[in-house]
Design a protein around this nucleic acid. Structure first.
Length: 461
RNA sequence: UCCCCGGUAGCUCAAUGGCAGAGCGGGUGGCUGUUAACCACUAGGUUGGCGGUUCGAGUCCGUCUCGGGGAGCCA
């Protein structure tokens, strides 16, 4: 009979238990007279369980050689701990040493820098901080599906391989099966008709256009999957491969869109507060002292909603010296966004109705013919966490706009078809999942909230 | 891609242009219901690479590389 108990269950027992089995990894070991304290972590939660191994064990000499990182299976009884610092501990009857971590094991029982841990990304989930981060990541993933499912959304798997380039969101990673050392050529140019798909292909930069097609069939849909940008961005907020949540809703205007986005962020903040309290505590204590306020503030305050024009006015009146000038028609810079959300409103801010010239082709043109029904949600520390819009549903207007932007209409025949047949007002947005994690954990570098980050010149692991 | 800062022991960091060090971790021994335990001893280095200046370079200069911060692009 397998009595294995995960530590997150064991620590919350109401009464002592005679026989349990715990399996996990040694975090630290201390010897006392006649026995040894072993702290074991099994990844189920932040906390370790303290194991007491006395010298009557057959393999006591080996037990005393257990190093940080070694794997053990412990059977014994759960008893109240006479020591301070923990309610329960295990009196071991038997400790099976599954494997020993040799002395060159890099993780020590002390704080390591994030920079160092990034160089051993295969081991870092074994640390407190990264274990907590990735438990929260998992919890939030599930919460996203639950949020949408509870509201009648359907989950759509949009393609990762794409044939359409100008989705208007950054550089594409090219995908090919051609021999790179010997590309077939016609008139000096690569002959993509010989390639796998018979044309140029790449990794998706957004599932939005596909999701729109399904919103116009199933009503409310969302995607949640990997997204790729070949931008040479070297910042703490960019990676080449990241996960994006993209809801798309039929019969939905910009106001509804902003409502859903705000409701979702509040819901997710609430989930983290409720379901990840112990892990959040670690971040609040060591990473970001204001984290709990940030979370509480997010779920309890109404986000500020201002138009782009109002944002410009506020920035102009601020009399603050910005590096980039504030001018109607120019996009908000990071410093402007941060002023609005961190200093002026001190809470999440939704900015809507941007000038059309700084936004992509698919956003719906407003009646002023100057602005489009776009919205960005800005949050403290991160800046833009959500970008969305009402989509242009009017065929003529959309076509004119695409021509204006010199887009190859024939490549978008299917997208335009959706406006030919049964077109309806619809809206959606994209949430950067890693940025959400940064926001809700206080972790300051995006490379530390994704298991194996892909950035320019780095695809190790 | 641009601007700024950095790379010294496994990790975190010291070292006026003049003998390369500490704490932690590792090893050995001791002590102890301990809590990042404690005490003693011990091993451990091509100072990121290449080139230059100098009697002499971890230190100054050039260049490459890697890492960090900021910016652009964006989620």
């Amino acid at each position: 009979m397998n009595k294995r108990m995960k530590i997150n269950k064991l620590l919350y027992l109401d009464e002592a238990v005679d026989e349990v089995v715990v399996k996990g990894w040694v975090r630290t070991r201390r010897s006392a007279k006649g026995f040894s304290f072993i702290e074991v972590n099994d990844g189920s939660c932040l906390k370790n369980i303290q194991i007491i191994a006395d010298n009557s064990q057959d393999n006591y000499d080996d037990i005393c050689r257990l190093t940080t990182g070694s794997a053990v299976a412990v059977s014994g009884s759960v008893v109240e701990s006479p020591g301070k610092g923990q309610k329960w501990e295990i009196n071991a009857k038997n400790i099976e040493i599954i494997s020993i971590a040799p002395e060159d094991y890099l993780l020590q029982k002390k704080r390591h820098s994030d920079e160092f841990l990034r160089t051993i990304a295969h081991l870092r989930p074994r640390t407190n901080k990264y274990g907590a981060a990735f438990r929260i990541r998992s919890e939030l993933s599930y919460a996203i599906h639950k949020f949408f499912r509870d509201r009648g959304f359907r989950y759509i798997h949009t393609p990762i391989l794409t044939g359409s380039d100008c989705e208007g969101a950054g550089e594409l990673f090219q995908v090919t099966t051609l021999d790179m050392e010997n590309m077939p050529r016609i008139n000096g140019k690569t002959d993509y008709s010989a390639d796998f798909f018979g044309k140029e292909a790449g990794l998706t930069v957004s599932g939005q256009l596909s999701a729109e097609m399904f919103a116009l069939a199933l009503g409310d849909v969302y995607t949640f999957g990997p997204t790729f940008r070949a931008e040479n961005s070297n910042t703490s907020r960019h990676v080449a491969e990241f996960w994006m949540v993209e809801p798309e809703m039929a019969f939905c205007d910009l106001d509804d869109d902003m409502d859903v986005a705000e409701e979702m962020l509040k819901y997710l903040a609430g989930i983290v507060q409720k379901n990840c309290a112990e892990d959040i505590e670690l971040f609040a204590k060591f990473i970001d002292k204001e984290l709990k306020d940030t979370i509480q503030n997010t779920l309890s305050s109404d986000f500020e909603r201002i138009s782009y024009e109002e944002a410009i006015n506020i920035l102009e009146k601020s009399k603050k010296k910005f590096e980039y000038e504030i001018k109607y028609g120019k996009d908000l810079q990071t410093e402007h966004e941060r002023y609005l959300t961190e200093e002026y409103f001190k809470k999440p801010v939704t900015v809507y109705n941007y000038p059309k010239d700084i936004k992509p082709f698919y956003m719906r043109l407003n009646d002023d013919n100057m602005t489009v029904a776009a919205m960005d949600i800005l949050v403290p520390r991160i800046g833009e966490i959500i970008g969305g819009s009402q989509r242009e549903e009017r065929f003529d207007v959309l076509e004119a706009r695409m021509k204006e932007m010199d887009m190859p209409l024939k490549d978008y025949w299917w997208y335009l078809d959706s406006r030919r047949y049964g077109s309806v007002p619809h809206s959606g947005f994209g949430l950067g999942f890693e940025r959400l994690l940064m926001f809700l954990t206080g972790i300051s570098n995006i490379r530390d909230v994704i298991p194996f980050p892909r950035t320019p010149k780095n695809i190790e692991f």
